[in-house]
């Protein structure tokens, strides 16, 4: 014998019966209405540039390999295609890092 349904049963079930609503672009529309990001503080760009410059300085002068890099720079000034290009690799890496730092500073908006 089945229990006859009560008011409680059918109304509770009806009220609690709420399907999941698929997103279908809703979240993207919400994100599109958000205000633009606040601009970075004015001091961030010079700080980043200064930090990049200092890091380069440390790399060239203070670290043990600094003298070697200075030597590479001297070699580069008298560079001829016949000589090996291998010593230039650290210099290129350093330039690449410095370039990255400057780019990061310039994109601070």
């Amino acid at each position: 014998m089945t229990r006859p349904p009560t008011d409680q049963d059918w109304l509770d079930e009806l009220l609690g019966n709420d399907d999941y609503i698929e997103d279908k672009g809703f979240s993207a529309r919400v994100m599109g209405t958000l205000p633009p990001r606040a601009p970075s503080p004015a001091w961030r760009r010079p700080i980043l540039l200064a930090a990049t410059f200092l890091a380069c300085l440390v790399g060239v002068v203070i670290l043990p390999g600094g003298a070697y890099l200075v030597e590479i720079l001297q070699q580069a000034s008298s560079y001829t295609p016949a000589r090996s290009q291998l010593p230039l690799v650290p210099l290129l890496v350093l330039l690449l890092l410095a370039g990255g730092g400057v780019a990061a500073a310039l994109h601070e908006d």
Binding site: Y20, I21, D23, S27, V30, M31, R37, A38
Partner: peptide, 15 residues
């Protein structure tokens, strides 16, 4: 101001 985090919250609670 992590927009990706906010987007996750929206997706989680939108329904």
């Amino acid at each position: 101001d992590d927009r990706h985090a906010f987007s996750t919250l929206v997706r989680r609670h939108q329904s």
